[in-house]
Structure formats: C-alpha cells, structure tokens
Design a protein around this nucleic acid. Structure first.
Length: 265
DNA sequence: GCTAAATGTTGAT
DNA sequence: TCAACCTTTAGCT
C-alpha cells in the first residue's frame, strides 16, 4: 500500500472523482469531526501529493492533510448504494457518483494553504513530481556518512521512497546498502534517480510496486502474470533470482532491509 | 480461526 | 529505544 506511488495514485483518483465540485465530508468515527465540519459541503479545488503526504485543497484556503502511515487505507463506494459505516472510519467523503472511506491514517487534519509549505519544507525532492530537483537529494547524500540504505528512507532526503523501493533500488544498482553516502558517485546517484522516476511511475500506473519489468533486467524473469515483481524484498533466506546466493536481511533505520551480498558489493 | 507482521511516522521514555 | 496508531494480509493451525 503506501509508498509514494500510492499517494500519487490516490491524488489522481480523488481529483477525478471529487475535483471541482462540492463534497460532503464527515467523520463516522468522530476523531475528525471538528476538521470535517470546516470543509463539509465545500468545493474540492485540487488533490495533490508530495512524497507520502496527500493534500485536498478546498475553497476557502482550507486543506486536508493526510498521511496514511503504515496501514491507512481509502476504500471506494458508489453513491447508488451508500454503505453503513463499518469499523473506524476517520473520514468519509461523498461526491456525486462516488464516495470514499479513510481508515487508520497516521495523520488527518485541516490546515490552511499558508501552512502547506511548512509541511513540504520538511521533505526532499519527490521523484514523481515534475518539478523535483534531484540535486537537493544528492547534496544530502554526498555529504553524509550515514549508509545509503538509511538515507533513502529519510523523507527529508528523498520524499516517497519506502522500505520496498529502498531494497529494490539498491539491488538494481548493485549497491551495498551499508555503503556511506559519501562513497556514492555522481553517476551512481544519477542512475538511481532516473531509475526511481521510471519505477515509481510504473507503480502509479499499475497500483503496485513492479521492479522486474523486462528480461534484460539483470537476467531475472520478465514480469507477467504469476511472475515475481521484486528481487529481494521479504525474500530473506531465499535464493537471489540472478546468482542463487541467499538473500540476507538486517534491521536498518528500524525497518527490515533485504539485499544480496553477492550482487551488491 | 488465530497470530504475527506489514509498503510509516510521531511522541513519550 | 519503544509504544501507539488500528487495518489488512500472509502463514499457520
């Protein structure tokens, strides 16, 4: 579910479903009642994402700021048959033809347009945004002695990369996750950024993380029905798809990292 | 049917 | 460093 591609996909969907029209907003669970009251019935001007943050811009300078966290989800329903609220629904939006329920977010709050830049200021460049400036990420990485595996997860370095893209990107570029940022060359970074932009666009389009795409990708089998989508993520102890070495795992920055010690040196 | 872990972040200790 | 958030799913029985 939620790495950056998920949020961009949701922004695109919400824009299409609810954009430029009044939306009914409520909080069946109650924890977002005050916020919902501020925007209920207003026009949603635009839905937008930056990294893992989602913004619903309403008329009247109000913005709903959402972060899904680890298990936040949106589920959609048709307004032909509006379901009774089930479980803990933080926010329910109802438009003309579709509605959606938000459950389990880390953050769901109403802020002002003027506060949006404060949120974005804490985030590095987002590979999915056309205006992204990769040199901001490069400047952080090349000056840091922290490992590249840790830096990729830092949202102030790169916005939108999560635990799956981290492991998979490093695998695709034959980079040992424990190498310090200072040892990453400009060419290596440029190649990773370019790849990340392409991989995350696939993620938005397909709604899932697919990093094995063609047969010439490291000799692994091409993606297709029933074919694997990743090289190393959650494959600890299994054979590397390319060299047969056992995939290893360790905890880095509080999350499980996966890599092939032979392919990534 | 039950348990553990999960694509993430925040705030307390 | 760890609990909390509170849902879904994978893997077992």
């Amino acid at each position: 579910m939620p790495e950056g591609h998920t949020l961009h996909r949701l922004a695109r969907l919400h824009q299409r479903r609810y954009g430029r029209a009044p939306v009914r907003v409520g909080s069946p669970q109650g924890r977002f009642s005050d916020g919902a009251a501020l925007i209920d019935g207003q026009v949603l001007r635009k839905a937008d994402a930056w990294g893992k943050h989602l913004f619903h811009h309403y008329a009247g300078e109000r913005v709903v700021h959402i972060h899904l966290g680890l298990y936040g989800t949106f589920t959609e329903f048709s307004t032909v048959d509006i379901p009774d609220p089930v479980g803990q629904i933080r926010m329910r939006m109802v438009g003309a033809d579709y509605g959606t329920d938000l459950r389990g977010p880390t953050r769901c709050e109403v802020i002002t347009e003027a506060e949006v830049p404060d949120v974005v200021a804490k985030l590095g460049p987002d590979p999915l945004r056309p205006d992204a400036d990769p040199s901001r990420a490069w400047n952080r990485i090349t000056k840091s002695r922290k490992s590249i595996g840790a830096l990729l997860m830092d949202q102030s370095v790169l916005a939108g990369v999560g635990n799956v893209y981290r492991s998979e990107l490093l695998y695709r570029h034959h980079i040992d996750p424990l190498r310090p940022g200072t040892t990453i060359s400009g060419d290596e970074f440029d190649a990773m950024w370019t790849d990340l932009v392409a991989l995350m666009k696939v993620g938005v389009r397909r709604g899932k993380i697919i990093v094995i795409r063609t047969e010439d990708d490291h000799g692994a089998p091409a993606y297709g029905p029933g074919r694997p989508r990743t090289y190393v993520y959650r494959r600890a102890g299994e054979a590397c798809r390319v060299c047969d070495t056992e995939v290893r795992t360790t905890v880095l920055e509080g999350r499980n990292l996966f890599w092939c010690p032979t392919c990534q040196t």
